[in-house]
Amino acid sequence: MTEYGTLRVKTGLAEMFKGGVIMDVVDAEQARIAEDAGACAVMALERVPADIRKEGGVARMADPQKIRDIQDAVSIPVMAKCRIGHFAEAQILEALEVDYIDESEVLTPADLEHHVDKWPFRVPFVCGCTNLGEALRRISEGAAMIRTKGEAGTGDIVNAVTHMRAVFGAIRSLQAAREDELYTAAKEHRAPYELVRWVAENGRLPVVTFTAGGIATPADASLCMQLGADGVFVGSGIFKSGRDPIGDRDGWVDDVTRRARAIVEATTHFDDPKILADVSAGLGQPMVGISASSLPDEERLEVRGW
C-alpha cells in the first residue's frame, strides 16, 4: 500500500535539509543563483523581509505565478510562506505543490489567536518559535519542522541567538528535571505533556530545528550551528548584500554569489575556524541592516505567533 503525506515523509524531507542553507528568493534569477551556490532549498517570496520592513503595508503569500516561475527555474525544493492562521493561502500553496509551507510571522498575521491546523494537509509545514513552549505548540498543530525566529530583515543575529538559547536551554533543563516535575513544566511551557516528556527523554525537539532571522555572514551561520541549529534560513542577508544591483548589476551578482557560497560552506564546516576564515575573506559589503534593539515594539516581527 502506498501512503502519501505521512508524518514520516513530512519530517523526513526536513531531515534531508539538515546541514544546509535555505535561501529567500523573489524571482527565478535569484533562485538559480541560490541553487548554483549550493542552497538545499529556496523560499519563494514576494519581497524579502528587509523590504517588507522598509515598504510597510500588508505582507501576503507570494503571487502563484511567481512561485511557478521559481519552481520551473530550479530542481531543489521550493518553499513558500503563508500568513499565520491563513489556511486558505496554505490550501493554495498545497495546490501549487510547493515542497514546504512556512507559516510565517514575517507576513502580516491573518488570525490573532489560531494558527493553521496543519494535520489535514499533505504538504509539510515549518513554523517559527521564540521558545520551547511555542515550538511544541506548533508541533502539536502538525508542524513537521521548526525554525527559531530571530528578527527577520535586520541582519542582526542577536534575536536568533536569544531564541536558540531559550529553546536549547529549556531542553537541557527538562533533561535534568525529575519525572514528577514534568507536569508543571508542561503547564509553564503551555505545551502538551506528552511532547514535553518526549523532549525530556530525547534531549531534542521531535522535528528538525533550523534557525532564522538576521543571518548575514558565514560567521553568523557557524555561530547558529555551534549553538545547536540543524541548519539555517538566510533571508535578506544574501540578496540585500553587495554592490548596488541597479548601478552595477554584474558586480551585485558576483557579490551575492560569493556570499551565498560562503554561507553554504560555513554551514557545513561550521566548526573549522580556518575554513571559516578563508570563506569569509573578501566578500564585499554585507547587508547594512538595522540593530534589532533599536526597533519600536510595533515593528518587531518575533512577537507574532501565539
Partner: peptide, 30 residues
C-alpha cells in the same frame, strides 16, 4: 532526480527484499 514528483508525492510503501520474506519499509522522499 525527483522522478515521482514534488514533496506531496513523497510516500511510504513496502519494498520486496531479495532473499527475505519480510519486506523492507521504504520511505521515498522526492
Amino acid at each position: 532526480r525527483n522522478a515521482y514528483g514534488r514533496q506531496v508525492w513523497s510516500f511510504e510503501a513496502d519494498v520486496e527484499f531479495e532473499g527475505d520474506e519480510l519486506p523492507l519499509h521504504g520511505v521515498f522522499i522526492r
